[in-house]
């Protein structure tokens, strides 16, 4: 007989682990990765590989040589950050910029707070926003799907001219602000089916709503995430844009357009649901989600940027501790039914 082990109850465990959760999110992102490869070809692969590899390497180096702790790259969280970062970048982005983005994401947004679990802001989004502010030209050069498949190396101005275009949101913003008639604008934009399938300009991962929906279905089925955040983000966007659309059909696009363009799907399903930076209580999650949805639309419709979900999520990340402090889960015995005597 071995030495008996004494430990406090419970003596069984669900077998769930950080690793499993992270890898399921990565698996759920694979359909979108495949879609981005289909639309953007070689660029998508290079951007993804660079971001994932550099995130993992940075985490390894920082934890080993600066924090002097056991590197935890095996749990997949660094790879996931890299993947999410890549999904937020245009596929023509030069490698060195991606590496800078990864360094910011892992080094500043994650490891400087103490690594996994301690970061107040979503690392991938911090990396993305940093790049957007630092390299506005490169970061808004959106390759056109399918046309850009075989271009990444040796880009000449001619190729770039021929294979880049504005995102639907940018077209919309531009159009509305220069007073182009609504019908005319609609004509210039891709159809909803095209948007749903991802035939539009945009970053690597946010293209195909269909692939992202498949991914979120996997996550919900495997209970990696709960429905609260995705549903509240999407729901609040539908309600808010729906109201605006009803108020003035000419100047405000409908909910379907807003949902299918930009990073709403990616953000609502994969970035806002990030465990570390979202609230813990179900009610808090809904408040968080509604906040993300409303701020996104405010930025899109009234702000100067065409897309706002990254900013919205980061802003709400900042509110997470506050939400956690005031919104508690529903406690047992709080709603007391009267005794039927």
């Amino acid at each position: 007989m071995n030495t008996l082990t004494i430990s406090p109850s419970p003596h069984v465990h669900s077998g769930d682990s950080v690793k499993k959760n992270m890898y399921w999110v990565i698996i759920a992102l694979l359909p979108a990765l495949a879609a981005s490869f289909f639309y953007f070809g070689i660029g998508a692969i290079i951007v993804t590989l660079t971001a994932v590899l550099s995130c993992v390497i940075f985490e390894f180096l920082i934890s080993k040589y600066i924090l002097k702790t056991e590197p935890t790259i095996g749990d997949g969280s660094a790879a996931l950050t890299g993947l999410l970062l890549a999904f937020n970048l245009p596929t023509y982005l030069p490698i060195w910029i991606i590496i800078i983005g990864s360094l910011v994401a892992i080094g500043i947004a994650k490891m400087s707070f103490g690594g996994l679990g301690n970061n107040p802001f979503n690392p991938a989004l911090v990396g993305r926003v940093f790049l957007l502010i630092s390299f506005p030209v490169q970061m808004t050069m959106w390759p056109t799907p399918i046309l850009s498949r075989f271009h990444y190396f040796g880009l000449t101005p001619e190729i770039i001219d021929a294979t880049t275009g504005a995102t639907p949101l940018a077209i919309m913003k531009e159009g509305v602000s220069s007073g182009i008639a609504h019908a005319e604008l609609m004509h210039r934009l891709p159809s909803l089916t095209e948007l749903f399938m991802g035939i539009k300009g945009g970053s690597a991962g946010e293209s195909a709503a269909a692939a992202l929906l498949l991914g979120v279905a996997i996550l919900l089925y495997k209970r990696v995430i709960t429905w609260h955040i995705p549903v509240s983000v999407v729901g609040s966007i539908i309600v808010f844009t729906g109201l605006l659309h009803l108020y003035d059909v000419e100047s405000y696009a409908g909910p379907a357009f807003h949902l299918l363009t930009g990073g709403v799907m990616l953000g609502a399903f994969f970035m806002a649901t990030d465990y570390v930076t979202s609230p813990m209580a179900p009610k808090g999650m809904i408040i968080f989600g509604v906040g993300v949805g409303v701020i996104t639309i405010l930025i899109r419709v009234f702000g100067s940027f065409p897309e706002g979900i990254s900013f919205a999520i980061l802003i709400m990340n900042g509110f997470t501790p506050l939400i956690d402090k005031y919104i508690r889960p529903k406690r047992f015995g709080e709603v007391n039914k009267p005794i039927k005597a």
Partner: peptide
């Protein structure tokens, strides 16, 4: 193989403990 606990890691704030608590605690 069933007797020992797995090594403890950082809290990732996944909220699973909150969702399973039968008393609605955190």
């Amino acid at each position: 193989e069933l007797a020992n606990r797995k090594p403890m890691q950082n809290c990732i704030r996944c909220a699973k403990c909150v969702s399973v608590c039968p008393m609605g605690l955190s």
